[in-house]
Design a protein around this nucleic acid. Structure first.
Lengths: 192, 192
DNA sequence: GTCTATAATATGATAGAC
DNA sequence: GTCTATCATATTATAGAC
């Protein structure tokens, strides 16, 4: 039988995830991550022998599992588009704590020019989000090209709102973005 | 008379700025910044006695001076709104190298919960951008509330497009965002 | 599985020669 | 103003006791 775990896997991942969201990959040291986890550095290395990069990978996998289990099935399911997008906006508001928490996919992105295992997982998750949102837009009547642009705009506004609302320390900006989010997919008028 | 400078101030700031844009504040060590600058660490400390934070501040000031000299006068000037926004989109495309370079205001943002001298400069610059863009939207016929939302959306889409196009390594996403940018200010329809 | 102790390296920062 | 040399600290990582 396995030895007693002071901190359960899920709790551990949540705590590490929070730290990464706050300070980013480069900003998080093993000492900070240990503190956040409630374990010593050595214990952290025992759970993640390859260190910080492995922690980042596991944290990303955890996020991906959540999306695969709770979000993509709804977007890819049989609900009317409007209900799908209301659910999506609500889920994003929860995930990002109404704009108070940064996006892991952004905070763990490798520097420009570089590429690592996190970069691949991040790209794959962004692409799945784009694909599922594109399908909702098509379901909502958009042409293939328009659907892609609408999906891109949703992801862009989510990420951008997190950056801007952090930059000016104003969560209302994120809230106003969320309000227009469903309509981007459901009824995005083309430029004049 | 002053001693000979191996690297001119403007060139130095440009090089340091590039490094910060690539790897962020936490990701940039004094050693990396020295390498990028083409000077030793000691020389860098001579030019910036307070170290990395001072470098970040100076780099932000340099960006702000550019905006004050080249961008805000146009947005706040007497051109028709459409011309202002065409100029703005073009300027943003240049600044961000068509989506290949991250935003300094984002990459130098302090971690959530923290606040430093950079955070204040970043917030101030974001707010001035919002103010000037809001006025262009008003000039274009928007109500005060609508104008504010349009300005926010422009900043959000700029920042978000940089994040997403980096995440999926696709500059076309930034380009498509730029194409719809002017119209957000000029003719942003309200949600249904 | 967790911990203390420790080693090797990287980093921020300074002193002093040229 | 730039450089080499140096130092204190922080960081990554491992060894070994419990």
């Amino acid at each position: 039988m396995a030895k007693l775990r002071k901190v359960e896997d899920d709790v551990l991942i949540e705590r590490l995830s929070k730290k990464f969201k706050d300070v980013g990959f480069e900003g998080a040291s093993m000492a900070m991550l240990s503190d956040a986890a409630g374990l010593t550095k050595s214990s952290l290395y025992h759970r993640f022998p390859e260190g910080k990069e492995q922690i980042a990978e596991e944290v990303l996998k955890h996020t991906r599992r959540y999306l695969d289990a709770e979000v993509f099935p709804v977007l890819d399911g049989n609900l009317p588009p409007a209900q799908k997008m209301d659910f999506f906006a609500s889920a994003m508001s929860q995930i990002y704590l109404h704009g108070a928490e940064s996006c892991l996919l952004n905070m763990l992105s490798p520097p420009r020019g570089q590429t690592n295992s996190c970069g691949d997982a991040i790209a794959a998750t962004f692409r799945q989000l784009l694909a599922s949102l594109t399908n909702v837009a098509k379901q909502s009547g958009a042409t293939a090209d328009a659907a892609q642009v609408r999906a891109e705009q949703v992801l862009i506004e989510l990420q951008g709102a997190l950056v801007v609302s952090r930059g000016v320390a104003d969560l209302a900006i994120f809230k106003r973005m969320l309000a227009r989010l469903p309509n981007i997919i459901l009824h995005n008028r083309d430029p004049i």
